[in-house]
Design a protein around this nucleic acid. Structure first.
Lengths: 193, 193
DNA sequence: CCCCAATTTAGATGATCATCTAATTAGATG
DNA sequence: CATCTAATTAGATGATCATCTAAATTGGGG
């Protein structure tokens, strides 16, 4: 029930063309040109919109010869549409975790070397979150990063960039979409920092 | 279950700031400055977002002294979130009405004077829709009209502009928002024209 | 192996929109 | 009525995004 996922779902659905595509696909699968004709738009425009619908997982495709048919996943649509009703439920309330500043400081002191590198990823959840938040400081707000850039950045501190990158996304420090990464607002983080 | 209403709902909800406001208001009413503080934004920004949330009817306000408290209408939120699941249902399928071209022609001939003015608004639904569609030809796609402009336009044909304006919106020829009017795509019209 | 049809990518354009600052309005209170 | 506080409006700026054309790609089939 990540906030960012909910936002993105509604952003994608909040467009007349895409709603009309959803509406058409409810009646059954269609291929790109058919959609383009029915809506009076050019094929590239359909590609553009369908890509977004696939991105939020409510449309998938099957190929038959040269023609690609698009299908609507109605179950997924329903689940996504209802997600907004759950935000703020107990399990999602922030701050999930209340950690004293002095505790944060000691975690940072213990897990980082004097040269700034991370000695080890804490296994204890609270401590891990502190480390993740500390590491993410160098990520710029609003900037969209390639996966490679993220990896390079993390390598400054620790060799296992894949784990840290994954943990960032899992714990809502960052938002991942299409292999691009972006810093989440602090309100989404699982702790104050 | 108008398409344009559904689109607008999702467009409004598809923004991180507004989702966060919804999330806050779930816990109880808040006034503008409180929201601004919690989100780290300026009051005008909150006014802007709350206006949109009110526009789709999921937020309302109550005044206490100088302070205005904003409330979340959770029932409305739920209903709106689910509306997308109903689009394309039998009752909403287009073309709702299949009218032969020659019938359209005769309706236009019967209800319009030779000078182009509308003699009378048909009471029979099918004929009324034909007249409404015929009248709306002069409205430009994509252009946003003030109510006054719409009235002036209709007066060319008929004195009772209020009724025709209202019928246009009710029958999805036009979309009304904040006293501004805009032509709907033909796919939303209740008949082919 | 070359051609054909369907789709996708790249890049440009114009529109929409979130946010801010500065100025204004709306009530309440002394 | 003067003043204070909360809210709103106006207008500017920068970012995002829907759509198009032109070009590239993909995967058959002769």
């Amino acid at each position: 029930m990540q906030l960012d996922k909910v936002v993105n779902f509604h952003k994608v659905v909040g467009d007349p063309t895409r709603i009309r595509i959803i509406s058409l696909l409810k009646l059954g699968p269609l291929h790109g040109q058919a959609i383009a004709n029915k809506l009076g738009l050019k094929p590239p425009t359909i590609t553009h919109h369908v890509a977004k619908l696939k991105q939020i997982g409510i449309v998938y495709q099957r190929r038959d010869k040269n023609t690609i048919y698009f299908y609507l996943d109605q179950k997924k649509l329903k689940a996504s549409a209802n997600a907004i009703l759950q935000i703020g439920e107990v399990t999602n309330v922030r701050p999930e975790m209340n950690i004293e500043d002095k505790d944060k400081l000691s975690v940072v002191k213990n897990f980082f070397d004097t040269d700034g590198s991370l000695k080890q990823i804490p296994s204890q959840r609270k401590k891990k979150l502190v480390v993740l938040a500390y590491l993410v400081r160098g990520i710029e707000t609003g900037k969209v990063y390639e996966e490679k850039e993220i990896n390079e950045y993390i390598k400054q501190f620790h060799e296992d960039y894949a784990t840290i990158r994954r943990e960032w996304v899992m714990n809502h420090f960052m938002y991942r979409e299409n292999n691009k990464y972006e810093l989440n607002p602090k309100e989404m983080w699982p702790l104050e920092f």
